[in-house]
Deep mutational scan, measured.
Amino acid sequence: KMTIRVKGKELARRIAKEMKDRNLKVEIHEHGDEVILEIE
């Protein structure tokens, strides 16, 4: 399990899509400006 902190929703969406393309499970937690992606 891996956690990534990202500034900006646009970048977070791009990373999430990339991870889904690799068949990984992604959970997205938004905290205002910061987005936390949990990847399994």
Results as ranks from 00 to 15, higher is better:
Val35Leu: 09
Asp33Trp: 05
Lys17Tyr: 01
Arg5Gly: 05
Glu18Thr: 10
Glu18Ala: 13
Arg14Asp: 07
Thr3Gln: 12
Ile4Val: 09
Ala12Glu: 03
Leu37Glu: 00
Asp21Ser: 08
Glu34Gly: 04
Gly32Tyr: 05
Glu27Arg: 13
Lys17Gly: 06
Lys7Ile: 11
Glu38Arg: 08
Arg13Thr: 13
Lys20Phe: 10
Arg13Glu: 15
Lys7Ala: 09
Lys7Phe: 06
Asp21Val: 04
Val35Phe: 15
Val6Phe: 04
Val6Gly: 02
Gly8Tyr: 07
Arg14Ile: 13
Arg14Met: 12
Asp33Thr: 07
Met2Ile: 15
Lys9Cys: 15
Leu37Ser: 01
Leu11Phe: 02
Asn23Met: 07
Ile36Phe: 10
Val6Thr: 03
Asn23Arg: 06
Asn23Lys: 08
Val6Glu: 02
Lys17Thr: 08
Arg22Gly: 03
Gly32Arg: 06
Val35Asp: 01
His29Thr: 13
Arg14Val: 12
Arg14Leu: 12
Glu34Arg: 07
Leu11Gln: 09
Gly32Ala: 06
Glu18Ser: 10
Lys17Gln: 13
Ala12Gly: 09
Met19Ser: 02
Asp33Asn: 08
His31Thr: 11
Leu24His: 07
Arg13Ser: 12
Lys17Glu: 12
Leu37Arg: 00
Lys25Asn: 11
Asp33Val: 06
Glu10Val: 03
Ile28Ser: 04
Ile15Pro: 00
Val35Met: 11
Glu27Pro: 00
Leu11Thr: 10
Gly32Met: 06
Ile36Ala: 02
Ile15Trp: 00
Glu30His: 09
Arg5Ala: 10
Lys20Leu: 13
Glu40Tyr: 15
Arg5Lys: 12
Glu27Ala: 10
Ala12Gln: 02
Ile28His: 02
Lys1Trp: 08
Thr3Pro: 06
Leu11Ala: 10
Glu18Asp: 08
Lys20Ala: 12
Ile39Glu: 01
Val35Ile: 14
Glu10Lys: 07
Glu38Ala: 06
Val6Ser: 02
Lys25Ile: 11
Leu11His: 08
Ile39Trp: 07
Ile15Gln: 00
Glu40Leu: 12
Leu37Ile: 13
Ile28Tyr: 06
Ile28Arg: 03
Lys17Ile: 08
Ala16Ile: 13
Glu38Cys: 14
Glu27His: 11
Val26Gly: 01
Lys1Phe: 08
Asn23Leu: 06
Gly32Asn: 08
Ala12Asn: 00
Ile39Asp: 01
Arg5Val: 15
Glu10Ile: 04
Thr3His: 11
Glu34Met: 14
Glu10Thr: 04
Glu30Arg: 08
His31Trp: 14
Lys25Trp: 09
Arg13Gln: 14
Ala16Gly: 03
Arg22Leu: 11
Ile36Ser: 03
Glu27Leu: 11
Arg5Thr: 14
Ile36Asp: 03
Met19Glu: 01
Lys17Val: 07
Leu11Glu: 13
His31Arg: 13
Ile4Phe: 02
Ile15Tyr: 01
Ile39Arg: 00
Glu27Thr: 15
Lys9Val: 12
Ala16Phe: 04
Asp21Asn: 09
His29Gln: 08
Ala16Cys: 12
Ile39Leu: 04
Ile15Thr: 02
Ala12Phe: 00
Glu34Pro: 02
Glu38Asn: 07
Lys1Val: 05
Leu24Tyr: 13
Met2Tyr: 05
Arg13Asp: 14
Ala12Val: 03
Arg22Met: 10
Leu37Asn: 00
Leu24Gln: 04
Arg5Ser: 11
Val6Trp: 00
Leu24Trp: 10
Ile39Thr: 02
His29Trp: 13
Glu10Pro: 01
Asp33His: 06
His29Glu: 06
Ile39Gly: 01
Lys20Gly: 09
Ala12Trp: 02
Leu24Arg: 04
His31Ala: 12
Gly8Pro: 08
Glu30Asn: 08
Lys25Gln: 08
Glu18Lys: 11
His29Val: 11
Asp33Phe: 07
Asp33Leu: 07
Gly8Asp: 15
Glu40Trp: 15
Val6Arg: 00
Ala16Leu: 09
Arg13Trp: 05
Glu40His: 11
Lys20His: 09
Glu10Leu: 05
Lys20Val: 10
Arg5Glu: 07
Ala16Gln: 04
Ile28Trp: 14
His29Met: 11
Lys25Leu: 10
Arg5Asn: 09
Val35Ala: 04
Ile15Cys: 14
Glu40Asp: 10
Lys25Asp: 06
Ile4Cys: 14
Lys7Arg: 11
Arg14His: 11
Leu24Ala: 03
Glu18Ile: 14
Asn23Val: 02
Ile36Leu: 06
Ile15Leu: 11
Lys25Arg: 12
Glu38Met: 13
Val35Lys: 02
His31Asp: 14
Ile15His: 00
Ala16Lys: 02
Arg13Met: 14
Glu30Gln: 09
Lys20Met: 14
His31Ser: 12
Ile4Ala: 03
Ala12Tyr: 00
Val6Tyr: 01
Ile4Thr: 02
Arg13Pro: 03
Glu38Asp: 05
Asp21Thr: 07
Glu18Tyr: 11
Asp21Leu: 06
Arg5His: 13
Lys25Tyr: 08
Ile28Gln: 04
His31Asn: 14
Ile39Cys: 15
Leu37Gly: 00
Met19Thr: 02
Ala16Asp: 02
Lys25Phe: 08
Arg13Tyr: 09
Val6Asn: 01
Lys1Cys: 15
Leu11Tyr: 03
Glu40Lys: 10
Ile15Ser: 00
Arg14Tyr: 04
Gly8Ala: 05
Lys20Trp: 08
Leu37Val: 07
Glu10Ala: 08
Glu34Lys: 05
Lys1Asn: 12
Ile28Thr: 04
Lys17Trp: 00
Ile36Asn: 02
Arg5Tyr: 06
Leu24Pro: 00
Lys9Phe: 05
His31Cys: 15
Ala12Lys: 01
Leu24Cys: 12
Arg5Ile: 15
Val26Met: 03
Ile15Val: 05
Glu30Trp: 14
Gly8His: 09
Lys9Tyr: 04
Arg22Tyr: 04
Lys17Arg: 09
Lys7Cys: 15
Glu18Gln: 10
Leu11Asn: 08
Glu38Trp: 11
His29Lys: 12
Met2Cys: 15
His29Cys: 15
Leu24Ile: 12
Ile39Tyr: 04
His31Gly: 07
Ile15Arg: 00
His31Phe: 14
Ala12Thr: 00
Glu10Asp: 13
Leu24Gly: 02
Ile39Phe: 07
Ala16Tyr: 05
Glu34His: 12
Asn23Gly: 15
Asn23Pro: 00
Ala12Arg: 00
Val35Ser: 05
Glu30Pro: 04
Lys9Ser: 07
Leu37Phe: 06
Met2Phe: 07
Arg13Leu: 14
Lys9Leu: 15
Leu37Trp: 01
Lys9Glu: 09
Lys17His: 07
Lys17Met: 09
Asp33Lys: 06
Glu10Tyr: 04
Arg14Cys: 15
Ile39Asn: 00
Glu34Ser: 08
Lys20Ser: 13
Lys25Val: 10
Arg5Gln: 09
Lys17Ser: 09
Ile15Phe: 04
Asn23Asp: 07
Glu30Tyr: 15
Glu18His: 11
Arg22Lys: 10
Ile15Glu: 01
Arg5Asp: 05
His29Phe: 14
Ile15Met: 07
Lys1Leu: 04
Lys9Arg: 12
Glu30Cys: 15
Val6Pro: 00
Asp21Gly: 06
Lys9Gly: 07
Val35His: 05
Gly8Arg: 04
Leu24Val: 08
His29Ala: 05
Met2Gly: 10
Met2Thr: 14
His31Val: 14
Ala12Ile: 04
Asp33Ala: 06
Ile4Tyr: 01
Glu30Phe: 14
Thr3Met: 09
Arg13Cys: 15
Lys7Asp: 04
Ile39Ala: 03
Leu11Met: 08
Leu37Cys: 03
Lys1Ser: 13
Lys17Pro: 01
Lys25Met: 09
Glu34Cys: 14
Arg14Glu: 11
Ile28Leu: 09
Gly8Leu: 11
Lys9Pro: 11
Val6Lys: 00
Ile28Cys: 15
Ile4Arg: 01
His29Ser: 10
Ile28Glu: 03
Arg13Asn: 14
Glu18Gly: 08
His29Ile: 14
Leu24Lys: 04
Arg13His: 13
Asn23Trp: 06
Gly8Val: 08
Arg14Lys: 13
Lys1Gly: 14
Asn23Ser: 07
Lys7Glu: 06
Glu10His: 09
Glu27Asp: 09
Ile28Pro: 01
Ala12Met: 02
Gly32His: 03
Lys7Trp: 05
Glu40Ser: 14
Glu27Ile: 15
Glu10Gly: 07
Ile28Asn: 01
Met19Leu: 14
Glu27Asn: 11
Lys17Phe: 01
Met19Val: 03
Glu27Ser: 13
Lys1Thr: 07
Leu11Trp: 01
Gly8Asn: 15
Gly32Leu: 07
Glu34Leu: 13
Lys20Cys: 15
Arg5Phe: 04
Met2Pro: 06
Ile15Asp: 01
